[in-house]
Each structure stands twice: as C-alpha cells, then as structure tokens.
Design a protein around this nucleic acid. Structure first.
Lengths: 154, 154
DNA sequence: TGACTCATGTCAATATCCTGACACACAATC
DNA sequence: GATTGTGTGTCAGGATATTGACATGAGTCA
C-alpha cells in the first residue's frame, strides 16, 4: 500500500479534484497563517472585514461559510486579541457592526500578503488567461449548484 | 445588510471562489446523501473502496483528506452497518485491508449516482472541453501547492 | 542478531463545528 | 395599534475532527 499515486477514475472526477485542491489550499494557508497565530476562518473574517467594514456577525458567517455560532467564537477570539471591535449596543436592530482595529489592519496586511503568495503559487502553472478562466468556471459551478439547493436525487 | 451580492474584490480571488465552490459542493452532497444516511466522508470512503478494494485505514484517510483517527471512526460506523468488512487480524503488517460488502456495494451504487448527478449539475454550464480543462487546471493547482508544503511566507 | 526508523492501528483528551432552541429588534400587514 | 415574519445574537447539547501518545509489525543497516 501507500503508493497513493494511481487513484484511477477518481482523479478525473470534478468533485474529488475540487476537494483535493481546496484541502491543499487549506493546508497551505494554515501553515502560512500559523506563524502569526491566525486560523483560516480568522483570516477570512479579517479579509472580509477589510474589504467591507461594518459587517455583522451573520454576514461574516455567510462570507466565511460557517455558522453564526462559529463566527461568533471566531469574532470573540479576534476581539479578545484587539484585532476587531464590536459595539456593545446595536446602533440599528440587533446587528453589531464589526470593524478592524489598527492592529487588526496590520495583521490583515501581513496575513493577506502570505495568503496572496499561496494563491500565486497555486496558480503559478497557469497562464493569466487560464487563471481568470478558472475563477470564471468555478463561479459558474457555484451558480449552477445554487439554483437548486435541494435536488433530492433518488 | 444581508444583500450579500457584492463582495467586491473577493469574488475574483481564486482561493475564495475555490472555497466557495467546495462549500457549495459539500452542502449539495450532504443534502443528497442524507436520505440514505450517509455523510460525505462515509460516501468518499465507500467510493474509494469501490475503486480500490483492500485499502487500509491510513490509505483511506489520505484519500478522503482526514486523519487516520477520523477515518477509523468512519470505518467503524460503516462496519457497524455492514457496509464494509475488515479482517480482525492483519494478513500483512498491521494494515487491515477493508472491502465492500454486497450491501455496501449497493449503497455505493445509489450514493454514487446521486453524487454524479450533483457533479453534473455543478458543471452543467460548462462545455465538455471546459469541464476537462477545469479538472486539469485544478490538478495543476494541487500539484503547484504540493511542491513546497511549508512555504513559510513572511 | 540487535538497534534504529518508519508506518500502521488504536486510545484518550481536546478543540471545533453544527443542530436545535430561545429572546430580541425591525418591517410589513391587517 | 396589534400581529405576523424575517433577521439577528446567544445559549446549550451533541456530533465530529483534530492533536498527542502509545504499542505493534516491517524494513534497514551496523
């Protein structure tokens, strides 16, 4: 065992390769983020906040693909370390708009650079056109899956 | 809030779209597999076993992108339901070659069909050539990330 | 032969995440 | 003005995955 080179038909399945790529990216990001004491969800949260300040917990959760509860925990950790700030009282409704602190912005700067390097490495074998095409096709896949959330195939 | 349509620059980041696609696929697979009481790791294990019978726990774990411990739990559940069989004594070394039972094969057949439907739906907006290209590019990404497991970007 | 290294399976403890549920705030409706 | 509905934040419970650790078997090399 343990040759692990020939998985046969599986290597040609879109889903498997997609998961494989996502897992590889996750591992690489985790390794790159670890030196700065950041998990992937934490980084994703920071990045989202950097691009769209004032997002609520629920919005953040949707953007990072986790539940509100998990994002709440992530946000607590970030808030505990002074990377983000949340008002104690909701200015509008119940949503607490989260924002980056100066320290958070600095951390995000470094983390974003590291992640960008990972992403560049990931697509380094692809031409710029192919990179853009890949993003496009991936987006198409997302859209195709979003149209019917519950196919309930028999 | 809650428009969630315009995430700005993030939509063009390969990593983000990749994660998005993987999350969407995971959700769809989960929904499709739930009626037959199968989780995604369980299905992945079955699929792997169907294509390469006799795989060990560690090999399975690598193929499904989880730890050996997690795969052990998955395997226990599958074995408990009579979907797979593992010898109590290792014929060679310590590895216990796992194999599908008849019931397991039948379950795999149905689950595989459902997952295939999901995959088809996912790439339904892409031409066959584009689909093949996507798999190719994704594989390229995996390879590019595998060359240096620990970039340790500053 | 004996020591060393590597891979495997398994156990325990920890951490993480999700499902279910509740209370609160705003908008829409009657 | 009261009611329903949607969205939000938070709490508890259970399921899941991971890290750390250990004992066993196989291969390597002095």
């Amino acid at each position: 065992m343990s040759q692990g080179e020939m998985v046969g038909d599986l290597d040609h399945a879109v889903g498997y390769v997609l998961k494989q790529a996502a897992a590889a990216l996750r591992t690489a990001m985790d390794a790159a983020l670890r030196p700065m004491d950041l998990t992937v969800p934490q980084y994703a949260c920071l990045e989202l906040l950097g691009q769209r300040p004032g997002l609520s917990n629920a919005d953040l959760a949707r953007g990072v693909f986790v539940t509100r509860q998990s994002m709440n925990g992530v946000l607590r950790g970030l808030q505990d370390r002074g990377l983000v700030t949340r008002p104690t009282t909701a200015p509008q409704g119940r949503a607490l708009p989260t924002e980056l602190t100066t320290t958070g912005r600095e951390q995000l700067r470094r983390a974003s650079a590291a992640v960008q390097a990972i992403q560049q490495q990931m697509v380094s074998h692809l031409s710029p056109a192919a990179q853009r095409r890949l993003v496009d096709d991936l987006a198409s896949c997302v859209a195709a899956l979003s149209v019917s959330p519950t196919p309930t195939a028999d």
